[in-house]
Amino acid sequence: MTVRRTGRMPWAHRLGRAGWAAVLVALYLFLLAPILVVLVESFDDATYLRFPPQGFTFDAYGQVFANESFRLGIQVSGVTAAVTALLAMIAGVPAALALTRLRFRGRSAIEAAFLSPLLVPHIVLGLALLLILAPIPLTDTYWGLILAHLGVTVPYVVRTVSAALMSADPRAEEAARTLGASGFTAFRRITLPAIRSGLLSGGVIAFLLSFDETVISLFVSGQNTVPLPVAVLQYVEYRSDPSIASLSVLLVLLSVVVVVLVERGLGLRRSLRSG
């Protein structure tokens, strides 16, 4: 009986596995198709966007860097995203600590306030920020952009870091204190390593969200500080050529590189520890 079963099972098993693989491939194709189309198009030699492309050249990539507004946009978005990520961490990590560690009156109200920007449509946030920043006046400045981006990035940092803190064992920190570590030392030596990956992904998410932010940026940017996504929108309003596709490919690459670097960094540190 067992013999017959083992003779048959792998067959059904293999069919099941093949089915799963097919579903997965189809799913990935569906998700990746737009990127693939853009990737292929980025090598076209035409002066307008078309699909399928006919020629093959790297010219479009050159055009991206030759374009003044793209170059400026990369600079504005890069600086904004870096400062935003840093400040979002400085604001978000202590907030996450307070929300997960302390019991105080109105804690859940404050928690809701921290997370509510996640629920508000960006177009509403953008309009509100414009109304607030215009009279200061902070519109069309780096600080205006950074302030606006903090509104959408801090909630993500709070959420990611809170989740990491919540999964760290509070008893381990207590054990460290009974072994002679002061509260701060116990946090630094025991809890911090446990939430390191949460901190890192919080910072990376903040950076990528800010770099990618379009709707809110449209409201609060002007002629002087034009972040890359806004520059792209302005460009395609009048023209559409393969350099837009090339730029998109570069943006995807940036995200992938950042994520891979972070993953590698974490993985490397982990294997160093265990080795």
């Binding site: 064992d169 009974t178 509260g183 390593p193």
Partner: peptide, 20 residues
Amino acid sequence: VPVHRRDMGVVFQSYALFPH
């Protein structure tokens, strides 16, 4: 006297070892 100066060894129910 604060915890870290009490000089008591504690074994927790969940062990609370340092995973890293």
